[in-house]
Design a protein around this nucleic acid. Structure first.
Length: 331
DNA sequence: GATGACGTGCATCTGACGTT
DNA sequence: AACGTCAGATGCACGTCATC
C-alpha cells in the first residue's frame, strides 16, 4: 500500500486501466481488445507497458487462457471499483426517479425465493416503479455465472457459489434447516413428538424422505451429518422444487428437510408440522450476486435495495410469528 | 515540418492443445 | 509423433494526432 501512496501518475495513461480491467474479465488479449475497441496488438502493447510500469507479468499465458498473477488479482477489484466510480461519475443522472424508469429486471432464484420474496417485491415495484417489469427464472440449471456474464439475468439469488471475481455479491439470508411432516402423521403422533420437537434418530432414519434434487443427486448436509455417525436415511422421493417436496410431504407419510423460513411460511397452509432433526444441520448462506458492471448502475442499485427491503420486511414478519427463543434468521 | 506517441494491418514466430 | 488450429508476442511499415 505504501508503495502506491507516492506513485507518480504524471504520464500514466488511465486507458491502461481499461485494458487491465478487460483482460481481467476476458482472460484473453484478443477478446479484451474486442470488448474495448482496440486491436489485439494494441492490447498486447498496452499490456507490455503495464508490465513495465507495475514490474509484474500481470497475466501469464497458459494455452488459450491468460492467467492473472497474484499481483493482478490483488489489483483487480480496486481497478474495477475505480473504473466503476468513474463510469458512474460520467453517466449518473442527476435525479434518478424509479417512478419514470422503463426497464425489465430478470432475477434468478429458486421457488423458495419466489414464494418468500416475489409477492412483496412485485407490490413494491407496482407502487414505486410501475414502468418496470420483473421476471424470475428458475435456477435449476446451475448456470448462474454464465447468465450473469451474458447479462441474461440481473441478479442471481443462490447459495454460496464459487463465482468469478467479476461478480459482486452481498449476504441476503441465512437459512437454517428444519424437518417437516404432515401434521397428522400417525407415526410421529404415536411417538408423542410435539411441534418443534426433535425427531429421534432411529425414527428419522426409518421414515421415508422427500428431497429437492434437480439432477437426481442427493448431497445434503443432513446426509453428511448422518454418515458421520454411521447412519443414513431412506430417500424415497426426489423432486426438482422445494414447494413440490412440501406438497408431497403434506399428502404422504414422508419427512422432508427444508429451509426454515420456507417451512414457517407454508406449514400452516399445507397442513405441515415443523420438527427439529436429530443431527446438526448447518445453515446455508443465501447471497445475492450480480455482475460488477452494474455496481454503479442507479436502476440496478435501486433493484438491489428493494430486494434488501423485502428481505428485511420478511424477516420482521417471521420474527413476529416466531417463538422468542428462536434465533434470528438473518446473519 | 519534425518528432514522438500510439494506433492499425499484416506477417511471422512460438507455444499449448487437440486430433489422428 | 506429426499435424493442424488457435491465440499471444513481436516486428515492421504506415497513418493520425498533438506538440514543439
Amino acid at each position: 500500500m505504501g508503495a502506491y501512496t507516492h506513485m507518480n501518475l504524471n504520464g500514466f495513461d488511465l486507458n491502461l486501466l481499461r485494458v487491465f480491467d478487460a483482460l481481467m474479465r476476458e482472460r484473453s488479449v484478443t477478446r479484451a481488445g474486442d470488448q474495448i475497441g482496440l486491436s489485439q496488438p494494441a492490447v498486447s502493447a498496452a499490456l507490455r507497458r503495464l508490465r513495465e510500469i507495475l514490474d509484474d507479468q500481470l497475466f501469464i499465458r497458459r494455452g488459450n487462457d491468460m492467467i492473472p498473477t497474484p499481483r493482478a488479482l490483488e489489483l483487480g477489484s480496486s481497478v474495477r471499483e475505480a473504473l466503476g466510480k468513474i463510469e458512474f461519475a460520467f453517466h449518473k443522472r442527476r435525479h434518478f426517479d424509479p417512478a419514470t424508469m422503463q426497464r425489465r429486471f430478470t432475477l434468478l432464484g429458486s421457488d423458495v425465493f419466489s414464494m418468500m420474496m416475489m409477492p412483496a417485491l412485485s407490490r413494491r415495484f407496482a407502487d414505486e416503479a410501475p414502468g418496470v417489469s420483473l421476471q424470475l427464472v428458475d435456477n435449476a440449471s446451475g448456470t448462474a455465472e454464465k447468465l450473469l456474464q451474458e447479462d441474461a439475468v440481473d441478479i442471481a439469488i443462490d447459495t454460496e457459489l464459487d463465482m468469478s471475481d467479476w461478480t459482486s455479491s452481498m449476504q441476503l439470508l441465512r437459512a437454517p434447516y428444519v424437518a417437516v411432516a404432515s401434521a397428522d402423521h400417525p407415526t410421529i403422533a404415536a411417538a408423542g413428538i410435539p411441534s418443534w420437537g426433535t425427531i429421534p434418530l432411529d425414527l428419522f432414519c426409518e421414515l421415508h424422505h422427500a428431497v429437492r434434487s434437480v439432477n437426481g443427486m442427493v448431497k445434503c448436509a443432513v446426509d453428511t451429518s448422518l454418515a458421520r455417525i454411521g447412519r443414513k436415511r431412506h430417500v424415497a422421493l426426489m423432486l426438482p422444487h422445494t414447494l413440490g417436496v412440501a406438497l408431497a410431504t403434506a399428502r404422504s407419510l414422508h419427512l422432508a428437510i427444508v429451509p426454515r423460513q420456507f417451512a414457517e411460511l407454508v406449514a400452516p397452509n399445507l397442513g405441515l408440522e415443523i420438527y427439529r432433526a436429530p443431527v446438526p444441520l448447518p445453515a446455508t448462506d443465501i447471497k445475492m450476486f450480480w455482475h460488477a458492471r452494474h455496481d454503479a448502475d442507479k436502476g440496478h442499485q435501486w433493484l438491489r435495495l428493494q430486494v434488501c427491503k423485502v428481505r428485511d420486511e420478511f424477516e420482521l414478519k417471521m420474527r413476529r410469528r416466531a417463538d422468542p427463543a428462536v434465533p434470528r434468521l438473518i446473519a
